[in-house]
Design a protein around this nucleic acid. Sequence first.
DNA 1: TCTTATACCGGTATTTGTATCACGGTCGCG
DNA 2: CGCGACCGTGATACAAATACCGGTATAAGA
Lengths: 102, 102
Amino acid sequence: MDAGRRGGRRLVGMVRTPLTPWERERGERFGALLREARGERSMVEVAAAAGVSAETLRKIETGRAPTPSFFTIAALAFALDLSMDELAAACAPPESGEALSA
Amino acid sequence: MDAGRRGGRRLVGMVRTPLTPWERERGERFGALLREARGERSMVEVAAAAGVSAETLRKIETGRAPTPSFFTIAALAFALDLSMDELAAACAPPESGEALSA
DNA sequence: TCTTATACCGGTATTTGTATCACGGTCGCG
DNA sequence: CGCGACCGTGATACAAATACCGGTATAAGA
């Protein structure tokens, strides 16, 4: 994922650091965006249109798959008529500038 | 990924179908786009700017990580000043219509 | 030559994504 | 009530992403 400087854990054999709480929250917000964009359409229909399984879509929407793959989201964004850039911007980290909303 | 109807394998316990050859080729094309966008900048610099490890960036660029995560690509696209929508469109499947470029 | 920086590669470790199955809950309709 | 569609959760299974380590190779510089 976009780790790298995830927390400065120095465990030698500790590769593939677990997702941080913030990353999981981001996954929830991200999934909420997809769910909102789905509107009235059923999960099965959208998942089929995108070529992913309904369970996968459900996990993404509920935030249980907080870091989905690029092409999975690309297929879903196409099926939902969403912009990937806007999706990414909506879940951008509160880094420099940015003036956290709340 | 965007599997779903990857090949119609019906093995009961066979979950998480391996990536198809086409998906791996797509990963190579995708990585080539990132490498081209990186230009003269070093892997370490871009990876650090995006917050990912240099090994991860190298694997994505060489196509050895053909289906990277959405947020990893989002961070790289931001660091490289690339559009995620254009990236996805450049690697779109040759599905219905589509009139392959060449 | 020696050192440094860069990139490639193989191996290893751990977490995660994706998918299937099975079950339970809710709702509307006959 | 039975039935079906939809959503949800849990368990299970396997492949893949991410990251760290060591080694190798090349080119530039002192």
